[in-house]
Write a protein that binds this DNA or RNA. Sequence first.
DNA 1: GATTCTCGGCTATAGACAGCATGTC
DNA 2: CTATAGCCGAGAATC
Length: 823
Amino acid sequence: MEPTSLSGLPSGVGEALEAEGVADLYPPQAEAVGAGLLEGENLVAAVPTASGKTLIAELAMLSAIERGGTALYIVPLRALASEKRAEFERFEEFGVTVGVSTGNYDSDGEWLATRDVIVATSEKVDSLIRNGAPWIDDLSCVVSDEVHLVNDRSRGPTLEVTLAKLRRINEGLQTVALSATVGNAREIADWLDAALVDSDWRPIDLRIGVHANGTIDFDDGSRTEVPVGDPPTDDQTAALVDDALGTVEDGQGGSSLVFVNSRRNAESAAGDLAAVTRRHLEESERAELDALAEEIRSGSETDTGETLADAVESGAAFHHAGLTSAHRELVEDAFRDRLIKCICATPTLAAGVNTPARRVIVRDWRRYDGEFGGMKPLDVLEVHQMCGRAGRPGLDPYGEAVLLANSAERSEELFDRYVWADAEPVRSKLAAEPALRTHVLATVATGFASTRDGLFEFLTNTLYAEQADDDHHLRSVTDGVVEYLVANDFLERDRDGDRDAIAATSIGHTVSRLYLDPMSAAELIDGLRAASGGSGTDTDDATTAADRGDGVQYAPNEDSAEKTQDFVTYGRVDGNDGREEADSEAPDGRPELTPLGLYHLVSRTPDMYELYLKSGDEKRYTQTYHEREDELLGPAPSEYEEVRFDDWLASLKTARLLEDWATEVDEDRIAERYQVGPGDVRGKVDTAEWLLRAAETLGREIGLPDDAVAAVRDARKRVEYGVREELLDLAGVREVGRKRARRLYEAGIESRSDLRTAEKATVLGALRGRERTAETILENAGREDPSMDDVRPDASAAAAATAGTAGNDGEGGNGQSNLGDFR
DNA sequence: GATTCTCGGCTATAGACAGCATGTC
DNA sequence: CTATAGCCGAGAATC
């Protein structure tokens, strides 16, 4: 089937596709068209990665637009949103406009309502529905990419519920779901009332094999000898990477992607493989790689950045979530440009943006899982996704994916477990409590249900209902969740005879719109109330606490993997305990609201990803806890309740990280002190900022005194800018961050108004003589005459600025570190 | 005597969405 | 917690 023969597309699109090289539709694409894709029919396409899924989506969206409609494309990751936007923008010449909406990025500030195609993450779509975005009920086509992720424990339910809501709001909505090949694609199609295209077809062949004893055995029966040699090719991975680079004759070498199971392994393997890739570099590449390494080093002066730069110089790299997003992008781009020959990655890369490789090596097939209690084999689906990254379109005749085995027996096991095996079926995880907590509240708050029965009726639109034999489990968990939400004043229930009405309270609406987990909101509200005991919300508080006292019990959850949530306190503990803090009360009788206290509060909500307690941390933070107990909000768990107390300490560790950031400790110091990557620091800071903003809104809503709300705002701003209190004003000026603010301050410029009146020489000196920067900053501060012409930097200001920022580690020096060298 | 090998003990363990209002060195 | 691999240092084996 030729693209030009398709009807229902904007004119010229068929020809344009042909010009791109789409001579014939791939078989699955043709099948999709046959199933009515261009006439608005629902479709589930379960096909391998890189076999033309995107074109299926594009055809559906373009035909919908041609009929005068608009389309929504749902992606699982923010990084994929921008990738898809770039792809779709090639249709702009046919008048198709594209917009992106994710948490950290909204398209051009233009109204999304005017766009023909909107790309968004599932959470963002959910949030847009909750906040009543005007265009959300005016869609004619929705595409859900990677729909098999409804299987994901934490984020799957959101996708599932969001699709159900979109389909309910939009009459006649065309639903197109793209999935990896899974065991039960039929079931997903039934759920979405869709035709099914289920195919293993690939445009580029993929051979999957296992390497053992110097030989790769492939699934098609072929064998390739890849002997393990002398250093640096003295282990399986190195030999395979070396082999891929050596055997491809296109002069560019075959790149490899190595999947490992931990960040540390990724980093150490990249270091080892650097010795291999180095041997295959050409002179010109070395120079480019040096430049790239330099760029990496300049981006973030951390250990991680340094290690990465070292590997990159030799043409290897690692990739994991501890990298800053800038570093990640540099690595991905250089790999696509074939400059970097080998990436060692954690599974971030398998699910992320498109990074095809000649050879994929799945080195580790087990990963530590705390809930499982040990090393758990990866899902078949996950391994298949990794393998699917093999084969670069237009470059490779076929892709190779190789699993590593250390013996013939292990090799056989891997063949059975992964090579011959079908992917697991996708199972809805909606009945898990944390998911229902959030979605029951949102469903009621957004008006999808106003009675208990209505709630269950809505839930029958989900995959869960499609899959469940009976809905008893879902009903009992839902009832428990409703009780929890009522006990925390997020929902109101009005039972009168046959009526069983449920409505969201005002605070419930707020929580839903803020996109908070209700449990986080409850934790925040309790913490804030504990710190402002005298406020007029006391009676309310007492009632709720009493309700809780009766014991809101949950039906035991059959899902054993719910474990992590089990020990989290449900709701609040008696509000009075929080006010019994002995010696920490402000003169008016309530505990002080310090930044640390607030950071700890947001860190212990389920919306904040936990930091591990490493060896020695337990001791360290128990001490910190005793020293600063007064600042923490609400009652601490007893030290004898080990699990909950450890959680409390882990939150305290996170809080200390945030406090360090807000007292201008350097990023690399923090990364080292808490043994996290620079990307993790940014992540924590971002999340804290978000939660503190939510806390501010909630605080106002529950009638917190103004000074308390102000304290929350200050703590939030200090995290946002990463500065001490005295720099808040300066850091609010555009182009002035934590570093520049401190330099200016040390040079005697302490506020925005100082910037307007200060000697220009002083400003310039503090900013290291950068005229353009200084001019921009003065302008942003509202100065009349920002020009720096003929101004000479003041040397003493420069000296003061440098003295104030040098070697800031938050504590005094590091005199200890040399003792070990003594011997 | 210096280098390599081996073994036992210790340690650490993947990922990343959202709000809101504009901008790092 | 139902585990395991990497790393490090100490002592043994080897040159």
